[in-house]
Simulated assay, not measured.
Amino acid sequence: MRSLRGRLGVSIGITAVLSVFLTGIVAIGLLRRYSESNARSDLTKVARAIAAEDPDTVGTTVTLPLIRRVLAINGDQAAIVTRNGSVLGNAASIVVGINLQPLIAGREISGTARTDAGNVVYVGVPISLPRRPAVTGVVLTRPVAAARGLLGPLVFRIAIAALIALAVPIAVAAVLAKRLTRPVHDVSEAAARISKGDLSQRVPISEDEELATLGVAFNNMASALAESQRREREFLASVSHELRTPITAIRGYAEAIEDGAVKGGAGHAEAVGVIRSEADRLEHMVQDVMDLARVGSAEFHLDVSPVDLTETLREAVAAHQNEAADARLALTADLPEQLVVESDPHRVRQVVSNLVQNALRVTGAGGAIGVAARAEGSAAVIEV
């Protein structure tokens, strides 16, 4: 059985069956002990009643057979024991296997023993007969089977009750297994649909805390995947747009050269310069995309060291002054004398250069672009 629901239901069912089985064994054992104890109690009462009778009649050939006939109604037997351990009459087989020494010493005895008559429950009560000093006690026995006479029907009823009781936990196990595995099934189905591209799938949140945690975690994961996909699409759209400009310029000048529209050394030099510039721009874009792809992976490294942020930003601004002048833009830097931070100077300059290039593209002629930096607590803030 491979399904979690099936295994869970079977496990709970087996546990219930074992519990009922063990409970039944313990109950039967206790009932046996109780029935034997109850038999000893009954026999003790009878034996004490016999011992309390007229001492002149107990043990005579008239009274003892009468007592035995009365006891035989329930399968019980009686024997009169003398001080030397012998038994009056022909009842010696009744006490075979029973230790009579405590009774001869004047103490009551009780227990179970294996006699010639089989396994019996027995009791012995001392008797004091002034006219018959040889008599020391009376022993009564009852077959264990008779003592447990009501146990058979009772065990049958217990078994019927146990079978009925088993139906309840088995039904509960089936319902519980279905309830516990339903959220897992929902997550499995939703995951399958997400794997096919449907990132809108979500699972209902269970009322159970552990299963609710699973549902919330899955929904958060699905939302994160959807957001990641949205950003990826936006990024690809942005990259596609950015790539069109240099590609268009390169294609335009290449076609102009091919068609002979560009004439003279100066024209060719200008065309080659534009093509080279746009090719460099494409290279930078590709490098930026590769760097972005490495972010968060083991391939992306930061060489962190103490760096003067003021000097790094000045170099980045100086690198774009000619480009700003060609676009008739004012590019200025508002920087402190020194601003030392723990960072990767190459990555900082790369980020600032990208920001300045973006500003140069979107700022109209005659505009101004400013680069500023300031300390803020234990960090530094750069603004473009």
Rank of each mutant, 00 (worst) to 15 (best):
S19V: 14
D344I: 05
A269N: 13
L71P: 11
D76I: 00
V304M: 11
P130S: 12
V96W: 01
D326R: 10
V272D: 11
V155L: 06
R68T: 03
T181Q: 11
L88I: 08
I257A: 12
I250L: 12
A256V: 05
K178A: 15
I205S: 03
V121L: 09
R328M: 12
A91D: 15
G377Y: 03
A147L: 03
G370D: 15
A217G: 04
N74Y: 08
S128G: 09
V87T: 14
V139D: 02
V262D: 08
P169Y: 06
G149W: 03
L180A: 10
H346I: 12
L199T: 12
G267P: 04
E311M: 02
G366H: 04
T44C: 06
I170W: 05
L64P: 00
L199K: 02
I160P: 03
M290E: 15
T332I: 10
G124W: 01
D54C: 10
A174N: 07
V262Q: 08
E283L: 14
T181W: 03
A92C: 00
Y122S: 09
R132C: 05
I104G: 07
G152W: 05
V317C: 04
A319D: 01
S35Q: 09
L31K: 06
L309E: 03
P133G: 07
D56E: 13
R148E: 14
I160T: 06
S305F: 09
R276N: 13
E232D: 03
A192K: 15
D334R: 05
V307K: 08
G97V: 08
R314V: 04
D54W: 10
S378W: 00
T60Y: 05
G111C: 07
A325E: 13
P55V: 14
G264F: 12
V384T: 14
T245R: 07
T44E: 08
T181C: 04
A375D: 03
G118K: 04
Q287F: 10
V307E: 01
I127W: 01
R33E: 15
V317S: 00
I28K: 06
V274Y: 03
L88H: 05
R294V: 00
V10N: 01
A174G: 02
A365L: 10
A380Y: 11
G106P: 05
I247P: 00
A327V: 02
I12S: 00
V317R: 00
S206T: 10
V384L: 12
A27L: 13
I257R: 06
L282Y: 13
R69C: 01
G6T: 12
S200D: 15
N219T: 01
V348A: 03
D280T: 08
V58W: 01
P126V: 09
G6H: 09
P143W: 05
T248N: 14
I247Y: 05
V262K: 09
S305R: 15
I50H: 00
G377S: 10
E232A: 07
V87W: 03
Q287L: 12
S188I: 11
G85V: 04
A224V: 02
L8Q: 01
R374W: 07
G370N: 15
L176K: 03
I127N: 00
V139T: 07
K178P: 00
E270W: 10
F235I: 04
A318G: 02
I28W: 02
L225T: 06
R83I: 15
G377D: 08
V304I: 15
G118N: 05
R132F: 12
R374D: 13
G267M: 12
T181I: 10
A173C: 09
S93V: 08
G124S: 07
L335Q: 06
